[in-house]
Design a protein around this nucleic acid. Structure first.
Lengths: 343, 343
DNA sequence: CTGAAAGCGCTAACAT
DNA sequence: ATGTTAGCGCTTTCAG
């Protein structure tokens, strides 16, 4: 009973494979009698259709590829993407799709597009940073439906947090607490999140007529805590003459490092200096004091990405290659507070 | 240039599809001339073999299923499994396998085995807790090679941390610091990790001649922080007459909640009471004070699981259905300290 | 060394 | 309503 095919159940029921196939796929021209006989036989023989054969015959695999990069510590290990993926998965598997992990790190000679073609996937969720845009170019320009979440591409719809809005939310929060000297630890300027957040900072400061102090801006080399410590040291080395009253970072890990560095140097957070982050990753709730940050709605991102991809795969041509912005939300915890004395 | 098959390159080169196939698969009986012609044509026409057709013909999909459950907040969202999966993936993709996510939460009528059969996977990595053992029974008993990581099954090799050893490591550490009244917050007794850690605690206490105090033992209902707070309250409610000098939990989240609860009640950790955890998840480094815990070697687990599965899929019959224990390591941070005054 | 042809399991015309 | 048959793209005997 290892491999039972529709031929087996055709033989058992006395009907032809064609009829069996039709019955199995709920086609119209099949008698009640045949349908029942087929169902019974399938149950008895424990028949499971072979998706490989189905795919070969129909050119539909019911497979969605999750195309991602493992550089930047991204990929599966980054909770941000995993959470989006989870939500995406829930959305698409309700329509019968399975998820295939595709990151041809090893298959050097073959790119993402070839890999996708090879596996006959019906669509792809792409999480590739701009720095590796070249790797997904052929895929995005192919006829395989795609949706992007990590970065934005003009050839596919993308779903991404409202980085600008989120940055503005936090800055408005700090401003309302009386902060005017707001330092900024920027994320690396190698992709949309880093760019947009930094630009929003500059815009906010300009709009409110606050001076943009070069000594209050520093760039982290990546999104790790280690880079955060380096950036924190650098910032403190630059701004000791005129300390900011608040430090806002483009990513929670950077804020965490900043917070820790400040405490070690004897500054009290938030009494002497406020610290704010972006992302609301798990550690922000565990930090001491708990970090005020901007939360991304990852479930919404995954869900919308799933819906868009499903529509594309269904041939819905009304899905445009535009950027969908998912609103963020301000999470006020303990690392920010009203400024006490202004000098 | 959308779909190029070996027929196309056969036509272009003038050779037959058989020869083309042989050349592509590096078979013996193919002339240098034919081989070169085929390679050239493939490159020019951007040929990518169709894995679906290959699978149908060879019955080998080069697909490995990651079979997991989404209950218990497990699945992709649990960093523990994701890290193991990452390591596993690195191991198997070096051999040309792709990973397919399989968790038939939605496909209620079809179980894991049917799902795997449907997709023709070559092997499966199973992360299913004992509480759902029935769902993987048919899969594990089938001819599909399997390796288990979340729980142990007698029908497949499993790779799992040395829970007993780890528990003993921590208890020995606490003992060496002078602790004798060691309370224990057990994980739910619904699976191997929970069982083994709890049993090891009992064994250690017995071996060292320490009394097993019912008021110093409490069971968490699950692995979440919330359950941890409940357990912490329960423990403090039971043991106020005779406080333990140390509290050891079967999981870091539980320890985190314990630590937080103690601080809120005015106890200083570790000065008045030591707290220890198990797992070394991310938050343990962020807790205040940083948590002393037992680290699991997830990379080693994933790697070994991958190696075992590869061997099984290669038909290596020397791979036994045994439990492979991966050593843990004691990570001493700031939440445990030598006991000061013994009464 | 190369070509022809059968077959993998299923679907989808096309007949009947 | 049911049966027949030709593919889907590739591998693999088996001849030549």
């Amino acid at each position: 009973m290892e491999k039972v095919t529709i031929y087996d159940i055709a033989k058992k029921t006395g009907f032809s494979v064609g009829t069996v196939s039709k019955a199995l796929n709920n086609y119209k021209g099949v008698s009640e009698k045949a349908r029942n006989a087929v169902q019974l036989a399938c149950a008895e023989m424990n028949f499971t259709p072979n998706s490989t054969a189905q795919t070969l015959a129909t050119k539909k695999s019911n497979l969605i590829g999750y195309v991602f990069s493992e550089t930047l510590g991204g990929g599966l290990l980054h909770p941000h993407f995993v959470q989006i993926l989870q939500s995406f998965k829930t959305e698409v598997e309700a329509s019968g799709y399975d998820l295939l992990l595709i990151n041809s790190k090893t298959t050097v000679d073959n790119g993402f597009y070839e890999h996708c073609l090879h596996r006959q996937i019906d669509g792809a969720l792409i999480a590739i940073p701009r720095t590796e845009a070249g790797r997904v170019e052929s895929l995005i320009n192919s006829s395989i439906p795609c949706v992007s979440i990590e970065d934005t591409y003009s050839e596919a719809p993308s779903v991404i947090s409202d980085n600008k809005g989120g940055t503005m939310q936090m800055l408005a929060h700090l401003y309302s607490l009386g902060h005017r000297k707001i330092a900024y630890i920027a994320a690396p300027q190698d992709g949309v999140p880093g760019w947009e957040r930094y630009e929003a900072y500059l815009q906010f400061m300009t709009e409110r007529g606050l001076p943009i102090n070069e000594n209050h801006i520093v760039f982290a080399t990546n999104y790790t805590r280690k880079a955060g410590y380096t950036a924190a040291e650098k910032l403190l080395g630059k701004c000791w003459e005129e300390l900011p009253t608040a430090v806002f970072s483009a990513y929670d890990e950077l804020s965490y490092a900043m917070q820790d560095t400040l405490e070690r140097r004897g500054y009290r957070v938030p009494d002497e200096i406020s610290v704010a982050g972006f992302d609301d990753i798990l550690i922000s709730q565990c930090a001491t004091p708990k970090l005020t940050t901007i939360a991304q709605n990852r479930d919404a991102i995954g869900k919308l990405a799933g819906q868009l991809l499903l529509r594309r795969m269904d041939g819905d041509t009304s899905v445009e290659n535009i950027i969908h912005r998912i609103p963020t939300s301000l999470v006020v915890r303990e690392s920010t507070r009203r400024i006490l004395d202004q000098n």
